[in-house]
């Protein structure tokens, strides 16, 4: 076999392996979502950056006081739930946690909060990170 045809077959094998793995992953994901009664969310290469305008943060603060302060404390420093300053997670992770909850730890807010509420809430939580940065010596 010539090296040129061997290279072509090898590249094809590599592509086939990765596409099979990605296809298999897609099936696993569909099954896992179905089993947990969740709606699959499409993967995105770039997530939009949450707007942290003062109005958005104020809206998020209001939602936080209504829905979250009971467990996380009015200053979000933690009570029954953890401190929410300096969250090292993505916006989507926050949205997923709010929407789906954490088994035996935190209820789902999927029926109580809409997308806009969650975006505002995320903006408020991000503003807490900046607050934590400022308070650090």
């Amino acid at each position: 076999m010539t090296s040129r045809s061997a290279t072509s077959i090898a590249l094809l094998a590599g592509l086939l392996a990765v596409s099979s793995a990605l296809g298999g992953a897609h099936l696993v994901r569909q099954h896992a979502m179905h089993a947990s009664h969740q709606t699959p969310t499409p993967e995105r290469w770039l997530e939009p950056v949450t707007s942290t305008s003062p109005q958005r943060v104020a809206q998020g603060r209001k939602t936080f006081l209504q829905r979250c302060a009971h467990c996380h404390g009015v200053d979000a420093r933690g009570d029954e739930g953890p401190d929410l300053h300096d969250l090292q997670v993505s916006d989507r992770y926050i949205a997923n946690t709010v929407l789906r909850g954490i088994p035996h730890e935190m209820p789902s807010f999927a029926r109580k909060l809409q997308g806009d509420d969650i975006a505002a809430l995320t903006a408020y939580l991000r503003s807490l990170e900046h607050e934590a940065d400022r308070s650090d010596p």
Binding site: A10, A13, A17, V18, L22, G24, A25
Partner: peptide, 29 residues
């Protein structure tokens, strides 16, 4: 079944998928 995920998992996946494809291609060659 997370293909990319987020945060550290995304960073892991961004390198692991090309590495896997290249490994299979190289071994086949």
């Amino acid at each position: 079944g997370s293909v990319l995920g987020h945060g550290l998992l995304r960073l892991h996946h961004l390198f692991v998928w090309p590495a896997f494809g290249l490994l299979i291609a190289i071994a086949t060659w």
